[in-house]
């Protein structure tokens, strides 16, 4: 038998080719198994990035799901601030604030108040744009902003970080719910989908 018959004829007996049926199926099984393991791994990865913990404030009448492992803080002049303890160099954070609205208070008044306060508190604070939009079927106002985050501690040599943020202002009867997202500018786009999931879980 010539060498070129070897392996070219699919009917060649198994013992002649050196590969048994077990060998062939085994190779396929290994490949399938690997694909399955990788698929499972990717699903685990995907699920972990959307894992959330619930947060509820009865006082403010809101509930929301925020990313697992984030720190919550209710001690500031906000309802809650959630921040990613691992994010570097700026801690990505979501802040929920409730502002009372009077009969003559407009959305613009609330946003101007935010701008004035932040201009006093934050370095190089700039409002980038303000636009009306609908989030999860609710009409809201979105304000994009940027500032420079610098550590006030003189013994800490942290480079100032350019931070981008978004405020979503939702009118709810006689109050405005402001949901703020702030992230290191370089990670902003990457972090945005998680924030959008966070926003969509808001109940009030």
């Amino acid at each position: 038998m010539s060498q070129d018959l070897w392996g070219t004829d699919s009917d060649l007996p198994e013992i002649g080719s050196g590969l048994t049926k077990n060998d062939r199926f085994s190779a396929i099984l290994v490949a399938l198994l690997t694909v399955a393991a990788l698929g499972l791994g990717l699903i685990t990865k995907q699920r972990s990035s959307t894992d959330t913990w619930p947060y509820e404030s009865r006082e403010a009448g809101i509930s929301i799901n925020y990313p697992t492992g984030w720190l919550t803080d209710e001690r500031g002049d906000y309802v809650v601030r959630m921040r990613d303890p691992k994010a570097r160099p700026f801690k990505t954070q979501y802040i929920i604030t409730i502002v009372p609205m009077g009969g003559q208070t407009s959305t613009r008044n609330v946003l101007d108040g935010l701008t004035l306060q932040r201009s006093a508190d934050l370095s190089a604070y700039r409002v980038l744009n303000v636009q009306e939009m609908t989030v999860s079927g609710v009409k809201s106002t979105k304000m994009s902003f940027a500032f420079v985050d610098a550590d006030p501690n003189p013994f800490i040599q942290r480079l100032p970080v350019a931070v981008m943020g978004i405020d979503f202002l939702i009118l709810d009867e006689n109050r405005a719910i402001i949901v703020t997202f702030m992230s290191d500018k370089q990670m902003f786009e990457e972090n945005l989908p998680t924030f959008e999931r966070f926003m969509s879980s808001l109940r009030y």
Partner: peptide
């Protein structure tokens, strides 16, 4: 993961 539980903290 509640910051109330943190007594002292720092960011490097």
């Amino acid at each position: 993961y509640d910051e109330k539980q943190i007594y002292s903290q720092a960011i490097s």
